[in-house]
Design a protein around this nucleic acid. Sequence first.
DNA 1: TGCCGCTGAATGAACCGTCATTCAGTGTAG
DNA 2: CTACACTGAATGACGGTTCATTCAGCGGCA
Lengths: 217, 217
Amino acid sequence: MTVHSAADRTGSGDKRERILFAAERIFARHGFFAAKVSDVAKEAGVADGTIYLYFKSKDDLLISLFERRMLELTEALQTAIAGKSPREQLRAFIRTYLQKCADEAAATEVLTIELRQSSKFMKEYENPAFADFLRMLGGIITAAQASGDLTQAIPAHIAARMIFGVLDELALAWVLAKQPFGGGAAGARPKKFDIVRAADWVITLITTGLEAHKESK
Amino acid sequence: MTVHSAADRTGSGDKRERILFAAERIFARHGFFAAKVSDVAKEAGVADGTIYLYFKSKDDLLISLFERRMLELTEALQTAIAGKSPREQLRAFIRTYLQKCADEAAATEVLTIELRQSSKFMKEYENPAFADFLRMLGGIITAAQASGDLTQAIPAHIAARMIFGVLDELALAWVLAKQPFGGGAAGARPKKFDIVRAADWVITLITTGLEAHKESK
DNA sequence: TGCCGCTGAATGAACCGTCATTCAGTGTAG
DNA sequence: CTACACTGAATGACGGTTCATTCAGCGGCA
């Protein structure tokens, strides 16, 4: 078990990390169910069996992925909103979220697509990290409502869901818009739209709505 | 098995329909991958092999489900928006969508959860019905922008995605909230809300946004 | 009317390929 | 030499799909 210390000879980083990131890429490429453990092993450059030295099962691999990424996201969001007014927190939240998606396409793909399933096929695993995420967003909205910045006509937890829906759908559309062909060149591929720029659109939508105003923006 | 029981009296033994709806229930309950063809057969009251007289494969069953439901949805939406102004079309679209979700929980569950996957694990099947759906919504928005009702600051196809994101996420939250069986310990999942009422919230969000107003339109 | 042989829809047990998982063996560091 | 990380071929379960078989209903015939 104790994998601590002693960086591994075969390259940079922990073997556990290598497996985790390999799994992310493979799951993103084929989807969790279609992905084979042996493919993950190959991608990570380890033997099939080695995976089971670090993870209990294939499911455990997926869950570990979730938790790692959600934790990372939550921390980034916490940092981004620290010390701001509710109104600014909302903007920062949206921008940070979409920026993270842009930075980590494979992670985004796994999260947007497999997250949704996870609540179904793993009944026993109720996603605490995602609940935290929603609670954070809901908290911002509640605060903004209390300060009079946002309308109270919509329950905060519903508003949070709706905003997440917008972000999630944009992330999905963006991720799937990529061309799947060609080798794994490091360069970013042409996207259908600029997801970071989309942050402004989201902010416009959720603050002032789509209705035309005399004064734009 | 004789076809004389009352349950079978749906038309001239419409076995294909029975299988389709059984599959919907089973896929909703277990998820597509975890669902066994034999379970679908049992639910439909037919033998395993019978399913293959009506469908090419398990995948074909899922795709047939999609197409049937999306067609039904699209038709309902077309009817609902006929002869209205763009602004009213948007409201009608939202209301009709959520009403449909409320009416058919199992269908909603399959569509919201499995639809997302389909674009991944079945590369060769590109969902034309969903594209039509998005095009219809985009068309409404384009018209509303042209008539000056909606801002042109956001590209219509992006706005359509964002609105779909809101609707989809609400549908998902609603579907997963109605867990009839208590299931997990310490499971806080009593958040059942009225999804039809949520239509007004969605309309508020996307037209005037969340910002507090004195009183506008 | 009653009998008979035909048809093909329906059946469901068995088949077979596909992986997730295991474990006996290998190499190596200490 | 021992211990331990690692390996990857072997294993066994699982479930989608097939297909030999059944039999209800039908039409022709006496």
